[in-house]
Design a protein around this nucleic acid. Structure first.
Lengths: 160, 160
DNA sequence: GAATATAGTTGCTCACGGCAACCTTCTAGG
DNA sequence: CCTAGAAGGTTGCCGTGAGCAACTATATTC
């Protein structure tokens, strides 16, 4: 594949993935809690993995409106999946933390789901999967708007 | 990275990508036509690349409801970006084709946009990009619901 | 201490997809 | 043929989701 062909294919497949993934996420969200909204599931997953965060951190990370985050936070708080504690260092802010119960439920679902995913990706060997995951991280990083384009970077070595 | 770590990272990054990509797609859509809706842009891109298709093909490919496709088709037809011609072989169906004007505009935008993407991915060499694009294709294919999971395949060539 | 920036909330709007009902046409079985 | 059911599309209704803007409260800066 030429570079151009790669770029074309990449964009096409991201488009496909984008639309398909909705269903999958919705199914997972329901497994964690019957009333959990799909988008909020993603937020929850982020909190589970990254530990307590502020709303603004999430908005920044996902590059979505803080209003949207605010509503989703309210949603998961209502479901008792997340707790808001005031930030002692800044009284405007709150720290969001996944409740123990939610974490437990989340991990259960994750394990079960990971078995399925692992099966579906059965013909990928570990190294391939590692490369792919790494490239996804790198791809996201490359597209970060704050990030200067690669050619403008002094040292370019974003990641190892 | 262990296999599990790879899977975790993969899912997290897909979640991030999923939410970020909205903005990007919206910006591109606007470049093609100021009134073009983001989702319809993806459909248009698919038609440009794959040639004339039926609505049902698109619904199947993207795994979304045919009603949603119907509305998006109507949208791009209204914008004169796509033409509907009755399928001679099946009078229920229509063939969707990108208009010459739309194709021209689309290609212009694509080239311009690809330059930007190419810059942003400047620190990826061609081979890496090819691998990544290939893996995206493969990943999507792996997750196709019609697709049997690897472990259920008769051939059994599953995984180490 | 006033101007300004930042964290979050809320109202409004539109984009988007799922579901179901419906129409039309095509296909199978009697 | 004719009838039953499947398939291609359209439409109405609804829930989810994000952007924008206005607003409150607290922090920061000069």
């Amino acid at each position: 594949m030429s570079r151009t062909e790669s770029l074309v294919a990449l964009e096409r497949e991201i488009g496909v993935l984008l639309r398909r993934v909705r269903r999958v996420i919705a199914a997972r969200a329901a497994m964690v809690h019957p009333d959990l909204q799909p988008a909020a599931y993603l937020m929850l997953a982020y909190l589970v993995e990254m530990g307590p965060q502020r709303s603004s951190d999430i908005a920044e990370r996902f590059e979505i409106d803080k209003g949207a985050v605010s509503r989703q936070v309210q949603h998961v708080v209502d479901l008792a999946l997340v707790e808001r504690t005031p930030d002692p260092a800044d009284r405007r802010a709150s720290i969001l933390a996944v409740t123990a119960d939610a974490r437990r439920r989340f991990e259960e679902v994750t394990q079960q789901r990971r078995r399925i995913l692992d099966e579906r990706l059965g013909d990928w060997d570990d190294a391939e999967l590692a490369v792919f995951a790494d490239q996804m991280v790198r791809y996201n990083a490359s597209l970060e708007p704050g990030q200067p384009v690669a050619s403008a970077q002094p040292d370019g070595g974003v990641r190892g």
